[in-house]
Computed example of a mutant assay.
Amino acid sequence: MSIDIPHQMLTGGGLGAVNAMQDSVVLANCIYNMTQVTPQSITSVFEEYYRQRYPRLDAQSKRSQLMSFIMGGKARGHVKAFEYRPQVAWLPLIPNRGTGYVLPQEGPGPLPMLT
């Protein structure tokens, strides 16, 4: 078993790297949306990160374990995971060009550029 810290993902599931990238994007968005730098706002950032990520990570960790035991039909198990596609909030959002459903972006959208 490989461990994607802080999420345990079995290598058979193939979700470790994806979750690491999603963690980075969601945490960066939460930090970007901070209005002030205080201990309370920093705590609030990590609470919001946890709120957005934990339910998905828990479900994907369980799915990863199950998929490690099932060899056939792996691709179908990933469809639900591919619906969640966080994007960096301060860059233009990439349109969905696929045929699958993509969940809407959480949190405020890009801020207007300062000139």
Score class of each variant (00 low, 15 high):
Q60I: 03
P39C: 02
V88N: 01
V102H: 13
A17W: 05
I94R: 11
P86K: 07
K74S: 14
R53F: 09
Q40G: 06
W90I: 00
L57V: 10
P104N: 08
D23Q: 02
A81F: 12
T35G: 15
Q60M: 14
D58V: 11
P104A: 10
G109S: 11
L111V: 04
T115F: 15
T115M: 10
R53S: 08
P39M: 01
M1E: 08
H78L: 15
N29L: 04
M1S: 11
S24Y: 02
G98D: 12
P95A: 06
K80Y: 12
M1H: 09
P39V: 01
Q65C: 03
S41Q: 10
S68E: 13
F69T: 13
M34T: 09
M71S: 08
L57K: 05
R53H: 04
S41P: 00
A28L: 14
Q65G: 10
D4W: 02
P108W: 03
T38H: 03
V45H: 06
S24K: 03
V26E: 00
S44G: 11
V25S: 10
M71K: 14
Q105C: 07
I5D: 05
V79A: 11
T99P: 00
S44M: 09
P55N: 06
M71W: 14
V45P: 06
Q52W: 07
D4C: 11
P112K: 11
G109F: 02
K74G: 08
L27A: 05
T115D: 14
K80T: 05
Y84A: 00
T35Y: 01
Q36G: 06
P92S: 01
P39Q: 06
A59T: 06
L10M: 03
T38M: 06
S2C: 11
P110Q: 10
I94N: 08
E47R: 12
P95R: 03
M21P: 01
Y101K: 11
S68Y: 11
Q60S: 09
M71A: 10
A20W: 02
R51W: 02
L10K: 05
V25C: 07
L114M: 08
G100V: 04
L91K: 14
P86L: 03
Y84Q: 01
F82S: 05
L91V: 04
T99S: 14
V26C: 02
G100H: 13
G16Y: 06
V79Q: 13
I31M: 12
M1W: 03
V88Y: 12
P92V: 02
G107L: 03
P112G: 10
I42Q: 04
G72M: 13
A20T: 09
Q65N: 10
A89Q: 04
L10Y: 11
M113V: 15
H7V: 15
S61M: 10
S64G: 13
G98H: 11
S41F: 04
Y84M: 02
I42M: 07
E83M: 04
D58T: 01
R63F: 00
V37M: 15
R97V: 15
G13F: 06
V37C: 15
I3P: 00
G98A: 13
A81L: 09
Q87L: 00
D4T: 11
D58K: 14
A89L: 00
T99M: 12
R56E: 04
K80C: 00
A28H: 03
S68V: 03
G12L: 13
C30Y: 01
P108Q: 12
